[in-house]
Design a protein around this nucleic acid. Structure first.
Lengths: 145, 145
DNA sequence: AACGATTATATTGTGCAAAATATTTTAGCA
DNA sequence: TGCTAAAATATTTTGCACAATATAATCGTT
């Protein structure tokens, strides 16, 4: 690992390792998620709904840092896959409520197992470091948000 | 920051903070890169070529963990923007050599300044932690690669 | 020299990500 | 009560990512 030369080397920046690590770990989720017919962003939406069913597009967007430009088509695909329903709030027709279908609910156990397996796989990186990494990433998100 | 509940909360996973932090920091690069007419992946290609001009698609792909499915169209756009040239290696027509144009070279100073500015902005996160974060991300990439 | 396997890049198709803009509904208020 | 502004979602457009497959050149072996 060449890591001691100019600032402009990729590995010396924080952004490139973040970008690469993010893609790599999402790739690691791909195979198990494929078996459930999910993409990683779709899986994130389901995780939110498993915790609290019936959330607004804007609430999901706030949690995932995504806007309607990304979420509307994503949620339409999830609706087409019979994972969620999309219905206007009758008391405020601007809002769209996203709810789990029976199929969406049925994936909860298998879905949570994927996270558990991944945590297990990453134990090789030492839990303490992992906690520190997580905290630093959250600091970084808050700094940039 | 709610962080003490079930394993399945987003903030308790490592993958979601990585995904979110990666997007946030690339967003932070967007405004200055826009002024140069670059996207972040295009900027990464230029950084590699500024260090060593005239690299194969496969060499760039190896550094960035990207394959030809992503790089071919990306490099064609960079060629159309007059940032690089793409020419077959005459001694092995399978290979394509990517080289900087005068315009591509002319962006080096301004481009490197963007990285310097970003490092400066992130100093609020303490240099020591930043170094540790970078090392852990590289460990993670290697573990998953 | 021929040919099967490998290598390097390109193509196709799907699904994000995000900026810019549009549409529709609601709220606030003169 | 109208009217303007704000809020919530949708649409459009561009550019990645990446799996799967295709194409073309080279290599190794016989």
């Amino acid at each position: 690992m060449e890591d001691s030369k100019p600032i402009h080397r990729l590995s010396n920046q924080i952004c490139f390792p973040l970008y690469a690590a993010s893609r790599k770990i999402i790739q690691a989720y791909r195979e198990p998620l494929d078996k459930l017919g999910l993409t990683y962003p779709q899986y994130l939406v389901l995780m939110l709904l498993w915790e609290k069913d019936g959330q607004l597009v804007s609430e999901i967007g706030h949690m995932l840092y995504l806007d309607s430009g990304t979420l509307t088509p994503l949620l339409k695909r999830m609706q087409a896959a019979n994972l969620v329903t999309r219905e206007r709030d009758t008391s405020d027709e601007r809002k769209v409520i996203i709810s789990l279908t029976a199929k969406g609910k049925s994936l909860e156990e298998a879905g949570k197992q994927i996270s558990a397996d991944m945590i297990c796989l990453l134990q090789d990186m030492q839990p303490n470091n992992m906690r520190a990494l997580k905290n630093q990433l959250n600091d970084l998100i808050n700094l940039l948000n």
